[in-house]
Simulated assay, not measured.
Amino acid sequence: MRQLLVFGEREDAEEVAEVLGEQFPGLGVPRVVRETLAGEDDAEDAQWLVVLEGLDEGSLAKVDELVERYEGWREAE
């Protein structure tokens, strides 16, 4: 199942992606993508996503802890 880690700041998303790449080397460095919020005209109102694929359920608690430190959240897709 694909996991989306959502952050308000690009720097936070990039740092989390780097840390996850180190903690879970089998995944490689996760992709960071920008998502514009529906109905928003201001380009500043975008979220930054870290896309994780291939992560086992046992690792999600570790991921959640890291995401919370950066004031983000995780969504399963």
Rank of each mutant, 00 (worst) to 15 (best):
G54R: 07
R31F: 07
E9R: 14
A38T: 15
F7T: 15
A76P: 12
L5M: 02
V19D: 06
W48K: 00
Y70W: 13
G8C: 04
V51Y: 02
L52H: 08
A13S: 01
E65A: 15
G72L: 00
Q47Y: 14
G72R: 00
A17Q: 02
P25A: 06
Y70F: 15
A61K: 03
F24G: 04
S59W: 03
G21D: 03
G28H: 02
E22D: 13
A38C: 05
V33H: 03
E14T: 06
A38V: 15
V33C: 06
D42V: 02
G72H: 01
R34T: 15
E22W: 12
A17T: 00
G72M: 00
V51K: 00
V63G: 07
E15T: 03
E57N: 05
A38M: 10
L5K: 03
Y70A: 10
D56L: 08
R31A: 15
G28R: 04
V29S: 14
A61Y: 01
V19F: 14
R2K: 11
T36R: 07
L4N: 14
F24N: 02
T36L: 10
D64E: 15
G58S: 09
V67R: 01
D41M: 05
G26W: 11
Y70N: 03
V32I: 05
W48G: 07
A76M: 12
S59F: 06
D64I: 08
Q23S: 12
G21V: 05
G58D: 14
G21L: 00
P25G: 05
E77T: 01
V16N: 00
E15Y: 09
R74V: 11
V51T: 10
M1P: 09
V51S: 04
A76R: 12
D41P: 11
G28Q: 05
D64Y: 12
V51N: 03
A76C: 09
G72D: 05
L5N: 02
D45Y: 07
R34A: 08
D56R: 08
T36W: 11
